[in-house]
Design a protein around this nucleic acid. Structure first.
Ligand code: MN
Ligand code: MN
Ligand code: MN
Ligand code: MN
Lengths: 147, 147
DNA sequence: AAATCAATTTAGCATGGGCTAACTTTTTGC
DNA sequence: GCAAAAAGTTAGCCCATGCTAAATTGATTT
């Protein structure tokens, strides 16, 4: 029951939050490369206007973000043209898409609505460790074959 | 198996990300009020220096954040004194502590290590809808009574 | 009661990630 | 082939969240 909720040590606690801030710093990058990969599959190319629509932000915001992604080596683009993933970007996108799918499938396996699973997965995906992801994956798998 | 991952409609997708950005904007607030409540219980009061240690940030950063929280009606403080939760702050802290605990217990019920559950819960807690939280809670409950 | 030490505050700065408005370029339709 | 529409870019702004360095205040110890 452990009602007596003792706080973690200061050092552990600080490390937890440091890693959390790191995770947050990567979220937008991860969602963008994932979305760019999806758009290339679904629409043949990833245009800024599509990204803006999908994320619900202005084209100016997309432009800023794409510049950062380019600076960080995840995408390449030429003025007024569509956006491409670099090898690093594609690798990250693959990893994120897989992780996203595992989280989504897990939520569905737990019996949640598609709409809710969709929304929650979009946030949770960035905060699951490799260990947790593996547990999610196995759980979903067991549910599928189990009955 | 639904391998053909069709994207959500543009409108749904945009709404998902809008809500996600909202959730992010609340994360720091939520972690602060939760931590302030914990410190008051564990140490008798919440001092800026303790918050700085726990979050692994500088006292200057804590000061900035506390000013925002005060502006937003979640805490009250006087210069060089410790920090108090307002009613709204206490209510939010209670809600967050409960939610945090449910997520943590759920991860433990899934068989994860305490260390990992602790870290992942700190991120995931901000991204679980009421529905998902309820499913988590029931799952943990079933595991406890079930065997 | 000083002196010291710890805690807090302030000032000034940076980056990420949003926005609007104005402008340029490309694409499309006639 | 040109005009209009769509897409992309740029400039200038805002706020949140972090930082360092310096100043200030509060607490402790002799
Ligand atoms: Mn995603
Ligand atoms: Mn996401
Ligand atoms: Mn998050
Ligand atoms: Mn948290």
């Amino acid at each position: 029951m452990a009602g007596g909720a003792v706080l973690p040590t200061k050092e552990n606690h600080a490390e937890t939050f440091a890693r959390l801030r790191d995770a947050h710093a990567r979220e937008v990058t991860e969602d963008y490369v994932e979305m760019i990969a999806d758009l290339i599959v679904e629409e043949g190319e990833a245009r800024a206007v599509s990204l803006a629509e999908r994320f619900g932000v202005t084209p100016a915001t997309v432009n800023n973000t794409i510049k950062r992604l380019e600076r960080d080596g995840f995408v390449s683009s030429r003025p007024y043209r569509s956006i491409f993933l670099t090898e690093a970007g594609q690798a990250l996108a693959d990893k994120c898409r897989e992780r996203h799918q595992i989280v989504y499938d897990f939520l569905i396996a737990l019996g949640l609505d598609a709409k809710i699973a969709e929304f929650d997965a979009e946030g949770i995906e960035h905060h699951v460790s490799a260990e947790t992801l593996e547990v999610f994956r196995k759980f979903t798998e067991a549910r599928k074959t189990g009955d």
